[in-house]
Every structure is written in C-alpha cells, then in structure tokens.
C-alpha cells in the first residue's frame, strides 16, 4: 500500500527586517546578509499577491531596480533569473549577488532611490496547516486537486520545492515515490509554475491525470 498524500496549506506572516536600501550597493549588502526567508519572500511575493495575473510581475529586486532606480538593463537581467532552475535558496541568492556585482563592476556610478521609495527588506514566517483532503491513489488525488484552495496548490508547488528544499514539487515526489508514476511525475515537474497562473497549472495537472487514468482503464 502506498503512503497517502496529505494536502496541506500554508499561511504567511510578513516580518519587517528594519533594513532598507537606497542604492545598488545597499541592495547588494542586504542580499548578502538577510536570512534565506527574506530572499524567498522577495522572489515570491508577487506570485502570492497577484496569483490571478499572467504574465506575473517579476521578483521584488527586479521591480525596484527597474521602476525605482530606473536601471532597466539590470532590472531585466534580475527579472530573467529562472527561479525554477534553483533547488536551494542559497544558490538563488548567489545568482542575484553575482548579477549585481557584475553590473556594478562595469557601471560603478550608482543612482539613489527618491525619498520614500527605498527598498525595504522583509521575510515570511510560514505556518503549514493540514487540510481535510488526502489521497491514496491517482483517482482520489484527481478528485482532491479539483477542490483544494489556491494556497494549498501554492504550498505544494512553490514552497515545498524551494523553501523546504525538497528538490521537486510535492505532487511529483509522491507520484514517483509512492505510485511509481515516473512519467507523469516528470511531466508535472517540467511544467514551469513561474510563467502561468496557479489556476491554469491546476487545470493542466487535472488534464494530465485524467489522461493517465483513461489510459490505465483501457
């Protein structure tokens, strides 16, 4: 018997670190020293607050550099960081640091943010809570995924992979480890959640699972 999949959801509290940046050097210094929870927060905040929008706005660092400092080239480079490629927050942090350091070497004259538009470092405190939904097999999983909240989707897709550093999303891990559905697990793992809304991602997963169940029943 495979172990059942328990669906969780997560709720966030935002903490202010009391640290701000008014130029690129201060942003860089902050990036090097703030906790990992802060890097996670600033690369995922827009996804959480605007999960109904696609294309989604970029990470906070890119937004601030482009719109406040008006350093558009650097802003574009920061927005283009392909978050899905990173399995650890530490590696994601290093990527942002190296882009900004590289830019500062070539462009040492820095712009200052106008008053009241500083970058404020924050972080998330995450509470992970069980929901009423569980699944023992693919059919039950399909039924549950149709009902869970967007926040639950968010937790298993984004938070589990990068924040809890499980390497892959929870759905793919369970499909592979417990149901031996390696092919389905891989296809879901290859869907890029950063370039579509969670609702459309849910619909794609439902479609893939229905297709697999139909094939099994033939």
């Amino acid at each position: 018997m495979p172990n059942p999949f328990h669906f969780y959801t997560r709720l966030n509290l935002t903490e202010l670190l009391g640290r701000k940046a008014t130029n690129l050097a201060e942003l860089l210094e902050g990036l090097k020293t703030v906790p990992g929870s802060s890097i996670y927060y600033h690369t995922h905040r827009f996804l959480q607050q605007h999960h109904f929008l696609s294309p989604e706005p970029p990470n906070d660092f890119a937004y601030w550099v482009s719109n406040i400092l008006q350093e558009e080239k650097l802003g574009e480079q920061l927005a283009a960081v392909d978050i899905i490629q990173f399995k650890k927050i530490r590696d994601l942090r290093d990527k942002f640091i190296s882009i900004i350091e590289g830019y500062l070497k070539k462009n040492p004259v820095m712009r200052e943010a106008p008053g009241e538009a500083e970058f404020h470092f924050m972080k998330s405190v995450t509470f992970i809570i069980p929901t009423q939904y569980t699944a023992n097999n693919l059919a039950e999983f399909l039924q549950a995924i149709k009902k869970i909240s967007i926040l639950s989707m968010y937790f298993h897709i984004f938070e589990a992979r990068l924040r809890l550093e499980k390497g892959d999303n929870d759905f793919s891990n369970w499909l592979e480890d417990e149901l031996k559905e390696n092919e389905l697990a891989k296809v879901i793992s290859n869907l890029d959640p950063y370039t579509q809304t969670l609702e459309s991602l849910r619909q794609k997963i439902i479609y893939l699972m229905e297709k697999r169940l139909n094939a099994q029943n033939k």
């Binding site: 709720l11 966030n12 509290l13 906790p35 929870s37 607050q49 972080k123 998330s124 405190v125 995450t126 509470f127 992970i128 809570i129 069980p130 924040r163 809890l164």
Partner: peptide, 28 residues
C-alpha cells in the same frame, strides 16, 4: 483580495501563534 477584515484576523492570529514559535517555518 487584500484589505478585508478576514485577512486582518488571519494575520493577527498568525502573529499570536508566532510568539510561541521561533522558526521561520512552523508545522502544525
């Protein structure tokens, strides 16, 4: 989406709970 009483209640409750947990990730 962002400024109704229910969101406010949720964040107060989370803050109360955070007084009794030290980590950035809390499992219930």
């Amino acid at each position: 989406q962002n400024f109704l009483l229910t969101r406010h209640l949720r964040e107060y409750f989370l803050m109360f709970l955070s007084l009794y947990h030290n980590d950035d990730i809390v499992h219930f």
